[in-house]
Amino acid sequence: MPSPRPGRQLVAAVRALLVATVVLGVGYPLAMTGIAQVIAPSAADGSLVSTADGTVVGSSLLGQGFVDADGAPLPQYFQSRPSASDWDGRASGGSNLGPNSAELADTVAQRRTAVAAFNGVPEADVPADAVTASASGLDPGISPAYAAIQVARVSRERGVPEAEVQQLVAAATTGRDLGFIGAPYVDVLELNLALDRELG
């Protein structure tokens, strides 16, 4: 029978947490890392992707900016969604602006004008994901609608037929998992890598 002295429970607690730290804090994650590196090494290391010459340019899971040094969008590439954190891998997150925020409303209006002008489409054709920042700041995807309004501009810049660009968009599009989970999206980095690879 345990003694009613409170100190005894504290000593047991210290020892229990030391055991937990070794087993759950070191043993468990290391064992899981070992298993992961065997069953799915590429995914466990972050689904890295590289160019045709083998240079690693990022992860197919992480969105990145296709912009020049001044932040201007590069017209030969499909553009990602806006990122509240400038696609910084050390500072993931969203804007956290509320649904009635005047600042957000202004930003959305400016983005809509800019995206419409950049792609040469009416403002009404610009979908919501093109003018809003994602939750992670690293969203790898855009909606098929946002990809669609970019096809003409990219093919014009690259001097290739729209049909060929459209084929690559289709190849980079992921439907709903099992047909009903989530939403369809186009992986922008995969798409742009394919553009460089297939269409120069």
Binding site: R81, G94, S95, N96, L97, P99, L104, A105, V108, A109, R112, P127, A128, D129, V131, T132, A133, S134, A135, S136, D139, P140, G141, I142, S143, T174, G182, A183, Y185
Partner: peptide, 12 residues
């Protein structure tokens, strides 16, 4: 104004 509740939401 954005046309949907996509601020702070992931497309996938």
């Amino acid at each position: 104004l954005a046309g949907g509740a996509l601020e702070g939401q992931e497309v996938r």
